[in-house]
Design a protein around this nucleic acid. Structure first.
Length: 493
RNA sequence: GCCUCCAUCGUCUAGCGGCCUAGGACGUCACCCUUUCAAGGUGAAGGUCGCGGGUUCGAAUCCCGCUGGGGGUACCA
């Protein structure tokens, strides 16, 4: 069994593309086949420099590797269509069809075609199905006109009656999908530049590369009849088709799009999504194992992934679910690994040096447990830790004064806190002692822990939400903590 | 418009004629834990299985129609 993912390098790879690649990969790994990557860059106009590399980076990030591809080669190379075209891979096949009378040279220009459509529309013809006049010419006559230098495309001669049928593994049911040939038109196989169009190039390549199963996005079902026809014309055995359900936009209107939705794969690692979480989430968009298993390792998914459990109905992009899953994966990591993983984010925020020194690394490692289980995206680490790694602005009186307290009371309480905590000379590992001291003050001043602890929290962090207070105090250290409390006292004086 | 695919809580899904008074997860809400926020625990709300017919002793499950949504309708992929 051989499958492939064949993206066109027109921009970054988005989540939907990753899912398609993933299902192909899963198919190959589960059934013990090969997974190939092929770059389909036959559209010179939409080609984006560097997109192919970008795309491969995204795939590797999610953990999708390929057995044959543009960068690693393989027995069916090259794996880039523009290179294959340059080698003359496609022309002989077009020629074969031309000679068999199954394709023809079409001299109708794009402008003429547009004109014909407009005229048809004006006449109230609902569906215009282009079939060029040259389809009935003898080949010699076509070649004669071509010899004069008139530009032409090569078009497929589609039948006008009967129907074309194909079976699809995930949709169409037992009966498969059938379309009347009258609905078809004579598609272009070779552009006037001699560059093959997708339909031609992918099909020749799939055949040459021994592809047995085509798992692709469902936007291709309507053009599959052309492909079936081409396989028939060539006398080749068609691969099995499996059209995957689309991932719709979060509002349910339309497919996920590069322009409207912020769903490039690289955006996710930039924000601190774990490849394992993304892998697991995407796996569940259009496939499921049973009625309750969601968190699965790659090996488990590979073992459990069968094509018959792929859904035919669309899924909707659900970032909240992805976020939740990312949190689960982060929590499952060892603290030391989280520390390593958040370091680049801290560096980007200039909270630790680049490259990081031993001292900072050790401090980050010490801080990590404070935020570990609060983290849903690694990219949140800087905002959670900045008050520990850097300086803070002295909080305002308004922020410092707890509920049901006034400035004077807060001043008194914080002063007592400062005095009491100053008396403890060694803080390291003494969270319990610090807590005992503050709880004693609560009793003394008849304050609720929430009030006093809250004031201290704001004093040392200038925020109302922070990791647990006593761990935070020891992590901050005695000197800095006391300095910040002292500064706060002057504010509420 | 035409062609085609799809249709279970807000979302992802389980379900393949009787185990369904429709199960799980995310999200939402409440409570517990608790120094804040998370995490964790417990629980709740949320689906007349898009609608209407049929087949059957029995239908979310099979059939037909309708409606809705997606995709296609390029010398783009």
């Amino acid at each position: 069994m051989r499958v492939r993912f064949a993206p066109s390098p027109t921009g970054y790879l988005h989540i939907g593309g990753v899912r398609t690649a993933l299902f192909n990969w899963l198919f190959a790994r589960h059934y013990g086949g090969q997974f190939l990557l092929r770059i389909e860059d036959t559209d010179e106009k939409r080609f984006v420099e560097g997109a192919a590399n970008d795309l491969m980076t995204s795939m590797r990030w999610v953990g999708i590797d390929w057995d044959e591809g543009p960068d690693i080669g393989g027995p069916c190379g090259p794996y880039v269509q523009s290179e294959r075209h340059a080698q003359g891979v496609y022309q002989p096949y077009a020629q074969q069809l031309l000679e068999a009378g199954l394709a023809y040279m079409s001299f109708t220009t794009e402008d003429e075609l547009a004109e014909m459509k407009a005229v048809a529309e004006a006449r109230g013809i609902k569906a215009f199905r282009f079939r060029g006049p040259e389809r009935d010419w003898p080949l010699a006559k076509q070649q004669e006109l071509a010899a004069t230098g008139k530009p032409y495309t090569v078009r497929l001669k589609t039948p006008t009656d009967g129907s074309t049928h194909f079976h699809d593994i995930v949709r169409g049911g037992e009966e498969g999908i059938r379309i009347n040939n009258a609905e078809l038109y004579d598609i272009v196989l070779l552009k006037k530049t001699t560059m093959p169009v997708y339909h031609m190039a992918h099909l020749v390549d799939d055949h040459l590369m021994g592809i047995t199963h085509v798992l692709r996005s469902d936007e291709w079902v309507s053009s599959t009849p052309y492909h079936v026809l081409l396989y028939q014309y060539f006398g080749w055995e068609a691969p099995a088709f499996a059209h995957l359900p689309p991932i719709l936009r979060a509002d349910g209107h339309g497919k996920l799009s590069k322009r409207k939705d912020d769903v490039s794969a690289n955006r996710f690692w930039e924000r601190g999504y774990l490849a394992d979480a993304m892998f697991n989430y995407l796996t569940l968009q259009g496939w499921s194992f049973d009625d309750h298993t969601e968190i699965m390792t790659r090996a488990e998914v590979v073992e459990r992934f069968t094509i018959d459990r792929v859904l035919s109905s669309p899924a909707r992009w659900n970032p909240a679910k992805l976020l939740d899953m990312n949190g689960i994966y982060i929590r499952a990591m060892a603290s030391a690994d989280v520390a390593t993983a958040i370091t680049p984010f801290l560096q980007k925020a200039s909270l630790v040096p680049t490259p990081i020194d031993d001292h900072s690394a050790a401090y980050v490692a010490k801080l990590t447990p404070l935020i570990h289980e609060r983290l849903k995206e690694l990219g949140e680490a800087p905002e959670l830790l900045d008050f520990l790694l850097g300086d803070i602005e002295t909080p305002s009186a308004e922020a410092l004064i707890p509920k049901k307290m006034d400035a004077a009371g807060t001043h008194t309480a914080l002063t007592a806190v400062h005095t009491s905590l100053s008396a403890i000379s060694e803080w390291d590992g003494q969270e319990a002692q610090l807590e005992a001291a503050l709880r004693a003050l609560c009793e003394q001043f008849e304050l609720k822990p929430g009030q006093l602890f809250g004031a201290v929290r704001v004093a040392i962090s200038n925020r109302t939400v922070a990791p647990p207070l006593f761990e935070t105090l020891t992590a901050l250290g005695r000197t800095r903590s006391l300095d910040r409390i002292a500064a706060a006292i002057t504010v509420v004086a």
